[in-house]
Each structure stands twice: as structure tokens, then as C-alpha cells.
Design a protein around this nucleic acid. Sequence first.
DNA 1: AATTGCATCAACCGCCTACTA
DNA 2: CTAGTAGGCGGTTGATGCAAT
Length: 245
Amino acid sequence: MTEEEDILLKKCIEKYGEGTWHRVPFRAGLNHYRKSCRLRWLNYLKPDIKRGAFVDNEVDVMIRLHNLLGNILPGRTANDVKNYWNTYLRKKMVKPSPKLNIEVIKPRPLNLSVPLDKNNNNKNDSDHAAASTPASNSLVSSDSGNNSSYDFSNDNNEIMWWKNMLMNEDEPQGFGNNINHSASGDQFIIEALGDVRTQVVEEDNYGKTTIKFQPMLKNVLNSPLNGEEVLAKDFTPCNKDKTIN
DNA sequence: AATTGCATCAACCGCCTACTA
DNA sequence: CTAGTAGGCGGTTGATGCAAT
């Protein structure tokens, strides 16, 4: 894309916002496929993108969380993380042991099966947290009976979705506030991820599925830094798990 | 100075999933 | 329930720049 096209695309996004990418080429007057426009915006033009070399703390977080969150790193584009991972880190990683019957569902702020508390009144309810999982995770909570959806039309809504994912009923102020770690890398994790909670689906030999919401940060902070990837099985269960027959 | 090999990173491609009519 | 469409992700490619020879 040329510089002029970048400007057109940027103006278009500023005017209409992100999303409905199929309309972006027409709106911006660009002769590019919708995916190209989206990629250009997300990986290059978006204003809050952090560019330049990865600092040690970021690499630290990446190593610890890559197996769980994939190419998600606060402030960085997925493409950047992916490139860095493939270039530098993949070769160094110890081959992970097979993860039997465990599936980690990464947080994806799409539509939810149940609306979040729009007053940002975090009630630390693990059932609520389960219901707040994106509808893509179809194993989750069929007992709510509420099919209304929640859209992430602005950043606040997405932040709320994360907050909901992060809540821990035992430690209302969040793990990050209760852990005293001196290492700068750990501090970075706390600042960057707060108290991210990870959803893990386990299936036993009889096909019974259990969904567990596990606090990520505490385990991440205790995880080794010797190149091993963090595996879901290393996480200790917490809160009220849900069992689906 | 020219050539070669490697590193980097933006972009492409194909597939999967969610949504909707 | 099904098919079509859009959004998103991961694997991969290709252009470019730089260092080594």
C-alpha cells in the first residue's frame, strides 16, 4: 500500500471505526481486498501500536504465555509477535509434552452468550464469568437461556470483557495487586496482563467435559523461565468449575 | 565494489469459526 | 438446519536491508 492509500485508509477508519471491513475498500476508495485493508490497519496503521525491538520484559512474557495466549502481547501486533516467535524463540523452545484431553480456550472478544454487567460492577461470580465466555466456546453454560449478544463496538466494552475474564472471587482486587514480585519481568506481566483468567476445558475418558477458570498470573509467575512453555496442565484449578455431561 | 547469505517484517493465502438470512 | 458471508488466525512467502566474504 502506498502512503496515500495509508492516509485514505486511516481517515476511513477514523470516520467509520473498525469493523465491516468489506465496506472499507469502497469507503476509502481503495483497490484492495477487505483483508488487506484490515491487515494494514491492524499491523501498521493503528495508532497505539508499539513498534521497534522487543524489550527483555516482553520476550519474558512471550515465552511464558505463548502456549496459552498464542500471539497475544499487549501493545504489540499479532504479526509482530508471530514473526518474533518464529524467528527467535521457536527454535529455542523445548518441545512441549502432549496435552491429553486438555484444550485451552483463548479469550476472544466476540459476541457473548450473555451480556456483561454494563455498569462495570464486577461481582466476581464464576458462573457469570462462564456465561461471559464468547459464544464460540459452545461448551460453555447452556443453562443461561439468554441468547442476547453483546457487541464490542468500542474499546471500553472490550476492556470490560477482559475484566470479566480476569475477575477472581477470592482476591477481589486481582492477583496483580496481591503478588509481591521484585523481578522486572514479573512486574511487567502484572502491569500488562493484570489478573488474566484462563478458561480450560478438560474431557475425561468418559467424555465428560469440565470447564475450569484458572487464574493465569499466579501460575505464570511461578513458571520456569528456562525456555519451557507454560502448559494448561500446570495450572491449578480455582473457583467453581462447571461440569457438562 | 560485487556477491552471497542471513535476518527482518509486511503481506498473502488458506482455513476455521461465528453470524445471519 | 443449511448455505453464504465476514472476521480472524496461523503458516508461509517474498522483498528489502545488512553484514560477511
